[in-house]
């Protein structure tokens, strides 16, 4: 289990850095959604199913949709 844990942590850090680097906001949001989903998987591994469920529904689902809704009304690219 520890191997999976370490892998997900590395993935999360890489995803966070990717969000920081990406100039295309839409891609950043999609990476963010994946990041949230991986986070909820990690929390499932750490035996907190309630929080994982909430994070999957709210963090990965609703937040990303709201981000996309706003990006569609504003700019897509960061300068």
């Amino acid at each position: 289990m520890i191997v999976l844990n370490v892998m997900i942590v590395i993935f999360l850090i890489v995803a966070a850095l990717a969000i920081e680097r990406t100039k295309d906001l839409l891609s950043a949001v999609i990476i963010f959604s994946v990041y949230s989903l991986m986070m909820s998987v990690l929390w499932l591994i750490l035996k907190t199913p309630d929080v994982a469920l909430t994070e999957a529904a709210i963090g990965a689902g609703v937040t990303s949709i709201l981000f996309i809704a706003v990006i569609s009304r504003t700019q897509r690219y960061e300068k």
Partner: peptide
């Protein structure tokens, strides 16, 4: 601004 909000989320 959107990147900053994402930063808050992270």
């Amino acid at each position: 601004l959107i990147k900053r909000i994402m930063g808050i989320n992270i």
